[in-house]
Design a protein around this nucleic acid. Structure first.
Lengths: 193, 193
DNA sequence: AAAAGACGTTGACAAATGTCAACGTGTGCA
DNA sequence: TGCACACGTTGACATTTGTCAACGTCTTTT
């Protein structure tokens, strides 16, 4: 159950965990199963844990006054989910996180994570690398949002996230790109030519 | 010259630097003056350093095929500038960074920064806090970009960044919000009512 | 098997935003 | 002093995108 997490950590740090470290990690991360449509977090809740996706697919989204959903983040195998702002500040979250498919998670509580950072320096290193990657990706997404047309944003999305294109329906991808499902449908129709 | 940086570090970590640590920091960060319109970084360059803004105002922006500029980030006193992606990956930057006003910087090279992280743990702690704040801010900006109307994005911007509203002209703020200067002008006209 | 719902598509129309050109006002430079 | 330039505004118009309703196809549920 935890082995994909070990693989992930090693992949990002080039440093295998010792047996003892593996034991500490295994103890801190608790398996959790979510069925399709189940919530991991609801708007207003405080995100008291972060979770590693072992298998399945999740999404993080906000809901506006009209009830329209806006996908802020997708997550599939070997991604992390959790609202960072709520987790860090212990404030009510602005977002919902739910399972788009039946999903296997490894969940860790904040206090345990902080302690684990002390005990397993490799994990801290991994967190830093992840943060770096995350900040680069968000910078690009912001630049795309303010610079590119909907058509170009979609093309970039398909190129950078083919795994999401197969996994999530178009109306969710549209909302991730900040457009409606109808607009995305028309963009796709044009591109076939 | 370096005192505002010391103040900043202490503010974010609640840990004053020792005399010796201050000396190390002072040695690693080099003062640099930029006149209005001077570049710190040009598209295609590799961002070999990060810089702390002591005084003045900078902007980071991309330029599209049509030659239109899109502001990705503003930075004034007590902010950091530098293209993180280029800095971390040592790849050519997609962005330009230039001085909007005459600006005083404290510049640090990558190798020196990494070494300083080892020597001054407080600095590492500061970096982590900054990254946390940065990731929370970008998450909100992305959510705004995909969920809010131009009008609402502007309202939020004014509320969250009054310092930028006074400091930068409207056409730059428009480009930061992903709209044209004409649209921003009309939004502002409506809101006066 | 039937019913309900999710998903994608299409058309007609409305609303938001962009484009282009013109103008007035400052500011700083020659 | 005068001239160029940056900035913001406005109008007319084009383009993009959203909204709403309808429909067909699947899949899921009953």
């Amino acid at each position: 159950m935890h082995s994909s997490l070990f693989t992930y950590i090693t992949h990002y740090t080039q440093t295998p965990l010792t047996q003892q470290e593996q034991a500490l990690v295994q103890e801190a991360f608790h398996p959790k199963k979510l069925r399709k449509k189940q919530y991991l977090l609801q708007e207003g809740d405080i995100s008291r844990y972060m979770a590693f996706v072992v298998s399945g697919a999740m999404r993080q989204y906000s809901v506006d006054e009209k009830g329209t959903e806006h996908v802020v983040q997708f997550a599939v195998e070997n991604w992390w989910v959790g609202d960072r702002e709520s987790f860090l500040m212990l404030t009510p979250s602005l977002y919902n996180i739910d399972a788009w498919e039946d999903t296997q998670l490894l969940v860790i509580e904040k206090a345990d994570l902080l302690q684990l950072y002390e005990e397993v320096p490799t994990l801290l290193q991994m967190a830093r690398r992840m943060d770096d990657r995350h900040s680069m990706a968000t910078q690009r997404r912001i630049n795309a949002a303010i610079s590119f047309s909907a058509e170009k944003r979609y093309a970039e999305f398909v190129e950078c996230h083919p795994e999401f294109v197969q996994r999530f329906p178009q109306h969710l991808i549209a909302s991730y790109l900040g457009i409606t499902k109808e607009t995305l449908s028309r963009i796709r129709k044009q591109q076939v030519h």
